[in-house]
């Protein structure tokens, strides 16, 4: 069974997913960061594949992408780092990245590598549902990769249903009209949207991301979904860390408190 399904079969509440950028803050930090996320008690690891032009990301993640690229990170390098990671990491691991670097690597070669190293799912923000169905669905399925779709407050009910039909693993609920890291806190308007989607009784679990940063926002988001995703806030925490493992575990303890 895909590790993502296994997770949601056994845990339905306060699922915590952590995003970080591969090769950040230092090129060889990818695995140590993953280990610390696991040791800190998170449930899913999202590895960002850095890209020069991340149009859905705000300044914090743009900056981590740029630093990772300057460090020499690439898909090729990432797959080298990930060889054998399953000996240490049992959490579900999802790759998040823009299409272009993956296209250049080769879609099929990419899927094959993902399966080989032990990746469970993909979040490709610039791959819309129709393009996924037309071009990639078969391939992803062949290699056992879950494709995780985003929905936003503007997504119509009809489309949310279609996305739910075509989703595997979980649905990524973008918490507001925003790019990553742009807004913090949770407003009443957002809660109305969370409630609206919750009342739809979707077949897939939902995680809320964008603007989640601490125990309070994590708890609020978890009240209306199966859990939440933290990205920019985590990147800020590790950017200048002198002791990655300790700082990550302390931070996650705080979020889960």
């Amino acid at each position: 069974m895909n590790r993502i399904n296994y997770l949601f079969n056994t845990k339905k509440e306060r699922v915590l997913s952590i995003y970080f950028t591969a090769g950040f803050p230092k090129l060889e930090d990818t695995l140590p960061v993953m280990e610390a996320i696991q040791a800190g008690g998170a449930d899913i690891i999202e590895i960002g594949v850095p890209y020069s032009d991340p149009i859905a990301d705000g300044p914090t993640i743009q900056d981590s992408n740029l630093i990772a690229l300057e460090n020499g990170m690439s898909l090729k390098k990432l797959f080298e780092q990930l060889v054998g990671f399953r000996a240490k990491i049992h959490l579900p691991v999802v790759l998040m990245g823009y299409l272009n670097p993956i296209m250049q690597y080769g879609m099929e070669a990419f899927c094959k590598k993902c399966k080989e190293v032990g990746i469970d799912g993909l979040i490709l923000p610039d791959l819309p549902m129709q393009q996924y169905l037309d071009e990639f669905k078969e391939l992803f399925e062949e290699y056992g990769l879950f494709n995780i779709f985003l929905i936003s407050p503007q997504t119509s009910e009809k489309r949310i249903r279609e996305i739910d039909q075509n989703s595997n693993g979980f649905i990524y609920m973008v918490s507001s009209h925003s790019i990553t890291g742009a807004k913090t806190g949770i407003t009443e308007e957002q809660i109305a949207y969370f409630e609206r989607v919750e009342a739809m009784n979707l077949k897939n679990p939902r995680l809320i991301g964008f603007g989640i940063s601490d125990a309070e926002t994590f708890t609020t988001a978890s009240q209306y979904s199966n859990g939440a995703i933290i990205g920019s806030a985590f990147i800020k925490k590790i950017k200048d860390s002198q002791n990655l493992s300790q700082d990550i575990q302390d931070y996650l303890k705080g979020v889960k408190a």
Partner: peptide, 12 residues
């Protein structure tokens, strides 16, 4: 061609 856009822009 095509439209490779984040879901957030889909409605627009």
């Amino acid at each position: 061609g095509g439209a490779y856009i984040p879901e957030m822009l889909h409605p627009n």
